[in-house]
Simulated assay, not measured.
Amino acid sequence: MKGPTELELKLRGYSLATAEILYRMPDARELLQTYVWQDYDLAPKFPRLKAFLAFWDRELEGPIHTVTLCHSSLVRPQEFRYGGHELRLN
């Protein structure tokens, strides 16, 4: 069975979340590797991201070092408005 479409997810309140995951290499713990995860998720609890990170801890050997999250509900372009003035610095 096919999952919900992008539009269906957006109508349910989901929006795109991107996580940069830094993890330690299984054979060389002093080296960090980057993995980028992207999916539609619900802010602020992020159940899909939490499920993915739980899967990672359970199934993969490289321990997670840091997770950096970017989500449209955290920063939105609509929050910034042009004030009608322009300042120039030389």
Score class of each variant (00 low, 15 high):
26 P>I: 00
76 R>Q: 09
54 A>E: 07
42 L>N: 02
46 F>I: 00
24 R>D: 03
55 F>T: 13
21 I>S: 05
75 V>N: 10
67 V>M: 06
89 L>P: 01
76 R>P: 01
56 W>F: 06
32 L>Y: 05
17 A>W: 00
3 G>K: 15
40 Y>L: 08
41 D>L: 02
80 F>W: 11
19 A>I: 03
59 E>S: 13
54 A>I: 03
34 T>Y: 09
8 E>I: 03
23 Y>F: 15
60 L>M: 13
59 E>N: 11
10 K>T: 11
84 G>W: 03
22 L>T: 00
58 R>L: 12
50 K>N: 10
62 G>E: 01
67 V>D: 04
17 A>H: 01
17 A>Y: 00
6 E>F: 08
55 F>E: 15
23 Y>I: 00
3 G>L: 08
83 G>E: 06
86 E>N: 08
5 T>S: 15
14 Y>G: 05
38 Q>T: 09
72 S>N: 12
8 E>F: 01
90 N>E: 12
5 T>K: 09
55 F>G: 11
58 R>C: 11
19 A>P: 02
72 S>G: 07
12 R>E: 15
29 R>G: 06
25 M>A: 14
61 E>K: 09
77 P>T: 12
33 Q>W: 02
35 Y>K: 13
65 H>P: 01
3 G>S: 13
43 A>H: 11
31 L>W: 04
9 L>M: 05
70 C>Y: 09
9 L>F: 07
29 R>P: 06
4 P>A: 14
16 L>M: 10
67 V>N: 07
31 L>T: 00
90 N>P: 13
76 R>A: 15
16 L>Y: 03
8 E>Q: 14
13 G>F: 08
18 T>V: 14
26 P>F: 04
1 M>N: 10
37 W>P: 01
60 L>F: 10
68 T>F: 00
48 R>A: 10
23 Y>H: 12
73 S>K: 15
76 R>H: 15
81 R>I: 00
31 L>D: 12
11 L>D: 15
53 L>V: 12
62 G>S: 03
79 E>Q: 13
38 Q>P: 00
70 C>N: 10
64 I>H: 03
64 I>T: 09
72 S>Y: 07
14 Y>F: 09
48 R>K: 15
88 R>S: 13
61 E>F: 04
56 W>T: 07
47 P>A: 11
11 L>T: 04
81 R>A: 03
63 P>L: 02
2 K>P: 12
24 R>C: 08
46 F>E: 00
79 E>R: 13
57 D>C: 05
30 E>P: 05
69 L>N: 03
58 R>H: 15
70 C>F: 11
15 S>H: 14
59 E>P: 03
26 P>N: 07
56 W>Q: 09
40 Y>K: 04
71 H>D: 05
72 S>P: 00
1 M>F: 12
35 Y>Q: 11
41 D>E: 02
86 E>R: 12
39 D>S: 13
49 L>R: 05
83 G>W: 01
3 G>H: 08
21 I>M: 06
86 E>L: 08
30 E>Q: 14
5 T>C: 11
65 H>I: 01
20 E>V: 13
79 E>L: 10
64 I>P: 02
61 E>D: 11
71 H>P: 02
